[in-house]
Nucleic acid binder design. Sequence first.
DNA 1: TCTCTTATTGCAACTTCTTGCAATAGCATG
DNA 2: CATGCTATTGCAAGAAGTTGCAATAAGAGA
Lengths: 141, 141
Amino acid sequence: MSCADEYAPQLRARGYRMTSQRLAILHVLHHNGGHLSPVEVYEQARTELPSLTETTVYRTLEFLAGNGLVRPALTGSGHLVYEIARHEHHHLVCRNCGNEMEVEHELLKSMYETLEVESGYKLTDSHLTFFGLCPNCQKGD
Amino acid sequence: MSCADEYAPQLRARGYRMTSQRLAILHVLHHNGGHLSPVEVYEQARTELPSLTETTVYRTLEFLAGNGLVRPALTGSGHLVYEIARHEHHHLVCRNCGNEMEVEHELLKSMYETLEVESGYKLTDSHLTFFGLCPNCQKGD
DNA sequence: TCTCTTATTGCAACTTCTTGCAATAGCATG
DNA sequence: CATGCTATTGCAAGAAGTTGCAATAAGAGA
Ligand SMILES: [Mn+2]
Ligand SMILES: [Mn+2]
Ligand SMILES: [Zn+2]
Ligand SMILES: [Zn+2]
């Protein structure tokens, strides 16, 4: 299944359009799989769509995140990176070596429910990044 | 107790210096109490220290955050704001009206411990921002 | 397949944030 | 109180990110 076949219906169902720009950006994120900064997305997507502009990349990433096709994540330096939306997860980053692992949302589910009850808010999403020392770096120090 | 008396020893104990720039920035955050963007910090601190530059504000906020005197927080638009370090807390923001409440770290403590056991990481800190609909905005929609 | 509506883009101007480097100023020490 | 080391700052240049607006093009409907 191509990126177009997979993502276009999701956008159209919400009243939005699939464009060559959105497709190129989704294609890059889909096939890379990992975290990319807006600039990295721009440079890679531009190889398949040279007319693409940085402005559009920023706007599109925010748009796709708002519609659940990609997910933003916060890096250790406080910058946003994006990845294609797969299973819901958060990030745990080593302050020493930068090594990173995923934290399944499942692990936080009961905490989420407690928070909803205590606050009265209905939770929709979150930016969660945990920092610490990975097993390796704990030995070294 | 003045800001200087309170914060200078904390910096010197770590081998750093207290400067007029750091003091002006700490003063602004201390007496404001809330969340301020780097630009807001710059404009307010500049009234008491006109020679202050934006470069120094960015570097100082990062430095103070790294040393535990201020804490960064992520806004709904993905931008960093800073507040003076008081009790450890996280943030819950309404996606509709922007209303914001604090989430005591205590509430997440057991989840933190589970995460340490499961991952093998030793957690040091985190950027946690939760989004949802506040009680008021749930009624309206 | 053509038309029409309007969602989306590119452009230009601007704001925010970062970095290297030389000048400055804390503060420890004598 | 004077000296010296070096942490810290300001400057300048550049990179990253934002915004308003006119031009473009997706795709629904005829
Ligand atoms: Mn991820
Ligand atoms: Mn707060
Ligand atoms: Zn590590
Ligand atoms: Zn609300």
